[in-house]
């Protein structure tokens, strides 16, 4: 991996040693999502795992958005 950026590498990689937040893979509305579980059946989307490109345009599954699973 090679970074080509104007930001100093030390700043980019700051906090790299911290343990990553655990994620779960779950199917919601027929779309497989990697989620960061939160409270009250809420979870933050980390990424979409799908071969259907239209799933990636769905605004409710954009990385960072909150989904509800019950």
């Amino acid at each position: 991996m090679m970074l080509f950026t104007v930001i100093p590498l030390d700043d980019v990689l700051e906090g790299m040693e911290e343990a990553p937040v655990p994620t779960v893979v779950m199917s919601i509305g027929g779309v497989t999502l990697e989620l960061e579980p939160g409270e009250n059946f809420q979870a933050k989307v980390v990424r979409v795992i799908s071969t259907d490109p239209s799933h990636y345009l769905n605004s409710s599954y954009q990385p960072g958005s909150i989904v509800h699973w019950t």
């Binding site: 980019v12 990689l13 700051e14 906090g15 790299m16 911290e18 990424r47 979409v48 799908s50 490109p53 239209s54 799933h55 990636y56 345009l57 954009q62 990385p63």
Partner: peptide, 19 residues
Amino acid sequence: LPPRNKTTKYEHVIPQLVA
């Protein structure tokens, strides 16, 4: 990248372009 960075995830952008 560590969460302090604001990032564009390429694995998300590429299927979007396909769509």
